[in-house]
Amino acid sequence: MPTQDLLDSFLAELGPLGPLAVWAHGSLAGGDYQEGRSDLDLIAVLPEPATPVLAWRVATLHSRLRAEPLAAGLHCSYLTPGASADSRRPHLTWAHRRLTRRPVTPVTRRELHAFGRVLHGLRPADLLAPVPDRELDDFVVRDQREFWRPAVHRARLWTRDAWVDVGLTTFARATVTLRDGRLISKREALEVLPDLGAPLAVVEDIRERRYGDPAPPAPGWTVRRGELTRDYLGPAIDALVAAYS
């Protein structure tokens, strides 16, 4: 299985850095992973602080994996025990074939505690503090208000599959987290979206591309799909934020 081969190669490359733990979150941990379509979302906890030398070593090990099938979708954030408590603090992260810095968000931390998959070493509960409900809710509202709502105005973004897929499923997941206090998968989000008033044609488009065997889009569909998504998400996000701020 290419996914397991990639994980095995990654753990072997990571071994010289002495990781205390390696965890999967997202779809791989939550049971909704679709090989060749889903990203591999990982967290590695290293004993050393994130120095320039460590950053070089991390970039080098990921470069060595480039020939592996599915390697483009492998994303990993690198924590150290002394710098893991603050959910707003950016950490060394490999994503989209480059090295950057990103926070490990309260949503990711809650996923790790709820259903994180241990690939190596210690459990999330051994190294990460629990996420209080208020911290999780505040982050979810802020993400919808400060990231997704301004993005609705950028029409060109919404001609891309990824923006439509993630924008709608993230909204549904945010709604369920705030309303019911639980995390759901993308598959579950697609079940929830019709009841939230999302455009059915777009929901079925996402479902087919994620779980089916989609045909090429009809002429003009990607533009129309983006318009439908933006027309729905703008007011929907406004209502959600107003209800839970």
Rank of each mutant, 00 (worst) to 15 (best):
L157Q: 08
R98V: 00
M1C: 12
E191A: 15
A21Y: 03
W56T: 04
V22Q: 11
P69S: 02
V53I: 02
L61S: 00
T105A: 08
P194A: 15
A44C: 06
L240R: 05
V104W: 02
H113F: 15
T80F: 01
D165E: 13
A236H: 11
Y33T: 08
L46F: 00
G116Q: 08
L99C: 04
R156S: 15
A12I: 07
V152N: 12
A21P: 04
Y244M: 10
P90Y: 08
L228V: 13
A129S: 15
L74Y: 10
R173Q: 14
A83L: 03
P47V: 06
A44F: 01
E191M: 07
V131Q: 06
L46K: 02
R154T: 06
G15C: 11
V107C: 12
Y78P: 00
D8R: 13
L28F: 11
G181D: 14
P194I: 14
S27Q: 03
A21T: 00
W158P: 06
R66V: 08
P52W: 06
E204Q: 14
R66Q: 07
D8S: 14
L6I: 13
T100E: 06
L65V: 13
T177M: 12
A83P: 01
G212R: 04
T159Y: 02
R182L: 15
L168I: 13
G82V: 02
L233P: 03
A172C: 15
W148S: 05
P49A: 06
W56N: 05
R142N: 15
G73W: 03
P235F: 07
G197T: 15
R142H: 14
R89K: 03
L74S: 01
H113V: 15
A125E: 15
D5P: 15
D5N: 11
M1Y: 02
R210I: 07
A242W: 03
E13S: 08
Y244V: 00
L168S: 00
D32I: 13
W163F: 12
A236W: 06
P217C: 05
D32L: 13
T170D: 14
R117V: 10
R102A: 03
G197C: 14
D126L: 01
V140A: 13
T177Y: 04
F10T: 05
R210D: 11
V107K: 00
R66G: 09
A239I: 02
S84D: 11
T222H: 06
V45A: 11
H75I: 01
H25W: 12
A95G: 05
Q34N: 12
I237P: 00
A155G: 05
H91F: 02
G31T: 08
H75W: 10
W23A: 05
P106M: 11
R145Y: 04
L178E: 02
A50Y: 03
D86S: 14
W221N: 04
A198I: 12
